[in-house]
Amino acid sequence: TTVKVNGTKYKFDTPEEAQKFAKKAADKYNLKVVVDGDDLRVE
């Protein structure tokens, strides 16, 4: 599972880890998590 934040992709072994990271990033930058198929985007 990958998470894309500000054009940078981060790869995670499990969707749970990816979800946690995406949520933290979204909170930090005051953005929202967008599900894109198997991957997540923070925008």
Rank of each mutant, 00 (worst) to 15 (best):
V34Q: 07
V35E: 11
A22E: 01
D27F: 08
Y10M: 03
Q19A: 12
V5K: 00
V33G: 01
D36P: 02
F21D: 02
V5I: 15
T1Y: 15
A25G: 02
T14H: 04
K28N: 07
V42S: 02
G37N: 06
P15S: 10
K24Q: 14
T1A: 06
V5C: 11
T1P: 06
Q19L: 15
E43V: 14
T2L: 08
A18S: 01
K24F: 14
A26F: 02
G37A: 04
A26H: 03
D39T: 14
N30E: 08
V34T: 10
P15R: 13
D38W: 08
K4D: 11
P15L: 14
G7F: 05
E17P: 00
N6V: 05
Y10G: 01
D36W: 06
T2V: 12
D27E: 14
V42Q: 02
K24C: 15
N30Q: 11
L40C: 06
D13T: 11
A26I: 03
D38E: 12
K11G: 05
D39F: 12
T14S: 12
Y29R: 07
K11T: 13
D27H: 08
D36L: 05
E43Y: 08
F21P: 01
K32E: 11
T8D: 06
K9F: 13
K23C: 12
L40E: 02
A25S: 06
V35Y: 13
K20Y: 11
K23E: 11
K20Q: 13
A25M: 15
V35F: 12
E43S: 08
K20N: 11
K24W: 15
D36N: 05
K20M: 12
K23W: 07
L40N: 02
F12C: 09
T8G: 06
A22F: 02
T8P: 01
L31Q: 06
D36Y: 08
V33M: 05
T8L: 12
A18K: 00
V35M: 11
V3K: 00
L40M: 07
V3P: 01
E17Y: 02
V5W: 11
K32D: 09
E17Q: 11
E16G: 08
G37T: 04
V34F: 12
K11N: 09
N30R: 09
V3I: 03
V3C: 01
A25Y: 15
T2N: 06
D38M: 11
K11C: 14
K32T: 14
D39A: 10
V3F: 00
N6H: 13
K4V: 15
K20V: 10
K28T: 07
K11E: 10
Y10A: 02
